[in-house]
């Protein structure tokens, strides 16, 4: 396994939206490498003939009826908002567009 570089961590931190200082990146890189060194053991036994388990119980088809139930009020919905305006969540400018 390749060593984890500061750039690797910087990329991960960007994907995870966590601002990190260069010192933090370095520290995280060495910790991540240490942890990955320990956890990569899973590869020793994870052969291709084993089916992955993503969920402890085998359940399926859990559905809800298409019935409307009361929503939160606008006030309740916005109750935790760091900022609000015009019945909406007020947030810093969203750059770019979709």
């Amino acid at each position: 396994m390749a060593a984890i570089s500061r750039d690797d961590v910087a990329h991960l931190a960007k994907l995870a939206r966590i601002e990190m200082t260069p010192a933090e990146l370095d520290h995280m890189a060495s910790e991540l490498e240490q942890i990955l060194g320990a956890v990569k053991r899973v590869q020793e036994v994870a052969t291709s003939d084993i089916a992955p388990t993503s969920h402890p119980l085998s359940m399926s088809n859990v559905f809800r009826d298409d019935v409307v139930k009361p929503s939160l009020t606008n006030e309740e919905a916005l109750s935790g908002a760091p900022a609000k305006a015009d019945e909406r969540f007020k947030v810093p400018q969203i750059l770019g567009e979709e």
Binding site: V39, V45, A46, A51, T53
Partner: peptide, 19 residues
């Protein structure tokens, strides 16, 4: 979970779960 590592890490871990 990132692309290129999923199978080696998350995927393998799920297989261990089966075991």
């Amino acid at each position: 979970l990132s692309s290129g590592y999923y199978d080696a890490y998350y995927g393998s871990a799920q297989k261990v779960r089966t075991l």
